[in-house]
Amino acid sequence: MQLEAKDIGFRYDDGPWLFRGVNLSVEPGEVVGITGPSGRGKTTLCRILSSYETPLEGTVTYNGAPIPKKGYHPVQMVLQHPEKAINPRWKMHKILHEGYHPDEELLALLGIEQEWLTRWPHELSGGEMQRFCVARALGQNTRFLIADEMTTMLDAITQAQIWHAVSEIAKKREMGIIVVTHEVKLMQRLCHRIIDFSG
């Protein structure tokens, strides 16, 4: 049930190669950190792993087979800026329930208050919106979660709240997590293993 990337290479149009020959495999229940200087393609690698982007070289496999293009993707990503990942014309409950209906327990764990559900996105703060994005990504069929600077814009308390919730769920469901962050201390707290991605 592992997620595996083999010999991945990527570049935009005819630009220089962002990276080539990248190999990575993540086991269920494992928390892997990716660190490295900015501008080297960490985000692009995450986008490839979650099929937002197609690699020019190499393959991404889940469970030994390529990930089907249709249907619920087993690798879900949470982005740095929640306000971009949310349709501004939807109310929060519609956003939350787009993929599935999270149970009360999950909402409580993430500190999502019932009263927020009837609000518009612009009436919530970044931290509050990000909790929704995390809840949305934690569907029953999510096997791997990619957190690309997921809590970078958030204060320490919200960061800790979200990570406690995510870790607890990951442990319960044997879900793998890939963490991209520049915060060394956070990475040390969370990850079983850290990969240096210097291109």
Partner: peptide
Amino acid sequence: ADFVQVSQRMG
């Protein structure tokens, strides 16, 4: 937009 891409990943 990001939210459309997220939606695609949700199948």
